[in-house]
Write a protein that binds this DNA or RNA. Structure first.
Lengths: 117, 117
DNA sequence: AATACATATGAACAGTTGTTCAAGTGTTTG
DNA sequence: CAAACACTTGAACAACTGTTCATATGTATT
């Protein structure tokens, strides 16, 4: 705390800091944004999303493709659903998942472009 | 395991699964991508990045703007540096950080666009 | 109605993450 | 060169994350 005050008064580029302070988004927006990116920060969820870019799939299909238990997949789908990245529809015994929003693929693609340099 | 085998042989859309299997990226790529997105999955790091989009800043500036300890900021900067999102240059006693790659802002902006709907 | 099936959910547990505290660099200034 | 400064680093710890296991829900079939 003492550190910070010294810094603020003596060392820092005062005008720069004040200008940037105005521009900064609210804590809430940063929190929401971090939650969105958190959805992309796990390989299992990325795999699921990449599959759903191609087409609608049921839990069973996804579990097979990922070689994971239905339960593990279902938990991840639940997270993606809660955060509005995907939606679902029931068809008889199956539940089909698909993307909820075209933005999602844009975010994924922007990340992938960076990774592939 | 038994569950999965049953699924693979009886229930799943066989052609769909096989086709998607071909298309899927390697585990390595998914891992790298998840690490990249993990950098965006914390509000503190998002704040830092958003500041660096505007201009080069020293640790002290950032700590002031975020009202956080130098140490906490430095740890986050270190992570961002290790993962090549930012670079730094020393100038006397100060170390100035800046973006390492224009892609970074594209990813951030794609996320923000989604959040703001 | 009873059973089987596809998926969901809750609890529990190991592994990871982000912060703090204390101590350590490297640079400038007197 | 000693002190002050700007920043980094390592250890430690609470909080969070992702998986597993066991159980529950809802739908179709018999």
């Amino acid at each position: 705390m003492k550190e910070r005050l010294e810094c603020e008064e003596i060392l820092v580029h005062q005008e720069t800091v004040e200008r940037l302070q105005q521009k900064m988004l609210s804590q809430d927006k940063f929190n929401n944004l971090s939650i969105l990116f958190k959805m992309f920060s796990d390989p299992t969820r990325l795999k699921i999303l990449s599959l759903l870019f191609e087409e609608e799939l049921c839990v069973c299909d996804i579990a097979c493709l990922l070689e994971m238990s239905h339960s593990a997949v279902s938990h991840q789908l639940s997270l993606l659903r809660q955060n509005r990245l995907i939606k679902y529809r029931r068809s008889g015994k199956n539940i089909f998942y698909s993307l909820d929003d075209a933005h999602i693929q844009l975010i994924y693609d922007a990340g992938l472009a960076h990774c592939l340099e």
